[in-house]
Design a protein around this nucleic acid. Structure first.
Lengths: 319, 319
DNA sequence: GCCCTCCGGTCAGTTTCTGTCCTAAATTTG
DNA sequence: CAAATTTAGGACAGAAACTGACCGGAGGGC
């Protein structure tokens, strides 16, 4: 405990939790002389962490932004927040960061004491998943499943799991996991199937109770170039999804203010514009159209027309 | 660079990025003998980080979950993911973790190199905010504002900002920030106003361009017990919000499957149930009711009835 | 039973660390 | 402008540690 490296770590932690510290206080907290504290600060600086110092009255030390990221010293609550947030992110709440999020998530979860994992589980139960419309979109994925598989990928460890293929019966698989690929709003696992002796793509939401076997393997080379390309190539079933096209009788400006983030909007004339969006679920285009508060006509898909007619009738009966 | 503590940190980092390492490889990477590596591992264990070791063929070291959280060694992408995720979390995407999220966020942002901050900003632009219906709910809050104020709270640093009170003119404030309180779906700042010489509560979404003055202060004691209580007491304007109550003619089971997470469902009889939810925006109850696909009657609020009638008419004309 | 890997003791030489001086430099305050 | 405060950093000596080399042991997998 009286170690130098431990102290350096504690110093880093102090600098992260409270930005500004006078030298004397830091020295007292760490139980060393001020001179040694200065040396510790020097050490941190040599390691690339930019500790800034102010002289004079009310001087002190603070950690600035540097070229490299220092290790994050987080407390329990913060770790839970990160874990829960990263779980949400892997579910597509924030497009584009799914992969980084799953890596961060495995790191946090790996070192998390059990009591914190329980907190995370408890919080997950009350969490609003990603966007709305999610529940009608892809089936929600157990974060637990994702984490186990991600860890196995990272550590080159064989896993077994149950898999229910497209309309097929449930089978038991034994594979060497290679990469996890987020595509569209789904996760896919690229793995070498040890029973079929070939590379396969598995949809993560069809995969149940993965178990780590503890057996490690030397990673094979994937035949294609890229795991993502491999998944795309193997995707026979096209993304279902709907391409929605609607003419809204309102100025493009008004429509943009509401839908800019979720749809592309083209102005037709001063009083109307064309709204396009791609979506798995028709529920939220309906909601979007309702909430704009303007007249509109649906160009496609026909399913949306049917659905709106049905909603209209039902809403009419309800009020 | 050849330091012991630096090496210990690097070892910790290695153990976090790739779970399983043979001792020899670790030793080579760290540039020390195997014996010294073993001593380093011992050091980590003494610091409370449980490094497990496997003997025999294919043996190696791995980091397990322990009692304490080790410093998280994250790479650039992961840091960006954490920052973006925590920003979303502070906006109420995941109820209950706002405060921890803002603390984690300030920690990450504080040490983040500028190039990564730019990435975070770029990602924020394309981010779908928290839940849908958000855009009709509370005005979105600039994460930048939240971060600046949170840092100032943490570091006991005076700030200045513009504030547009409830129906009042814009004023310039100079305060000693005390605490940030998430309440409902909004953030409030409890601070000592240096012009008015009294404690005040500020709604964060009405606060513009906060500037850190660099002047630190000795924290005063808040008169009441709790910052959260102080905010609640000062809240004259009640949360607008709607309490939605709807009878749905479907089995409770079916409705639960769809709405369990966002609403409370009470069974009335075998064929109908009562759905309650609280929301700022009526759009998404409408969408939820539409997507269930069952008949229903609205009990309250009257605004929902009006809105549904209007939607019904408009949908009818559209198809 | 054999091989591979981690485990930990001992020892000597070297390095580093620490506290106590000291002076210098920067910055705020009066 | 001077005083006070606070970081910066050199010198030094003693204590503490770290390191590599060597060793026999122990546990796991084939």
């Amino acid at each position: 405990m009286a170690n130098t490296s431990s102290r350096t770590l504690r110093l880093l932690s102090l600098l992260q939790t409270h930005r500004y510290w006078p030298g004397e206080e830091l020295a007292t907290r760490l139980g060393v002389s001020v001179r040694t504290l200065r040396r510790d600060v020097d050490r941190l600086r040599e390691l690339g962490y930019p500790v800034e110092a102010n002289r004079g009255v009310d001087g002190g030390y603070q950690l600035a932004a540097g070229a490299a990221l220092p290790p994050l010293v987080v407390d329990d609550d913060e770790a839970v927040a990160i874990a829960v947030g990263m779980q949400a992110a892997t579910q597509g709440a924030i497009p584009g960061i799914e992969e980084s999020a799953i890596r961060a998530l495995t790191k946090v979860v790996q070192v998390m004491p059990p009591r914190l994992r329980r907190q995370v589980d408890a919080l997950r139960a009350v969490t609003v998943p990603s966007g709305f419309g999610q529940y009608a979109g892809p089936p929600p994925l157990e974060p637990e499943v994702l984490i186990v598989v991600a860890q196995a990928c990272r550590d080159s460890e064989r896993i077994e799991f149950g898999y229910t293929g497209h309309g097929a019966a449930a089978t038991e698989r034994h594979v060497e996991p290679h990469r996890l690929v987020p595509l569209g709003r789904r996760w896919y696992l690229v793995a070498y199937d040890l029973t079929r002796h070939d590379w396969r793509t598995f949809r993560m939401d069809r995969l149940t109770s993965p178990r780590r076997t503890g057996a490690r393997f030397a990673p094979r080379k994937l035949p294609g170039e890229d795991a993502a390309a491999f998944v795309r190539a193997g995707l026979k079933e096209r993304q279902a999804g709907y391409a929605v096209e609607v003419v809204v009788h309102a100025t493009a400006e008004v429509v943009r203010a509401r839908l800019e983030r979720w749809a592309t909007i083209e102005e037709i004339d001063a009083g109307s514009c064309l709204v396009r969006m791609n979506t798995d679920s028709l529920d939220w285009p309906a909601m979007a159209l309702g909430s704009i508060g303007a007249e509109f006509e649906v160009r496609s898909p026909p399913e949306l027309i049917t659905m709106l007619a049905e909603w209209s009738a039902r809403f009419g009966r309800a009020v």
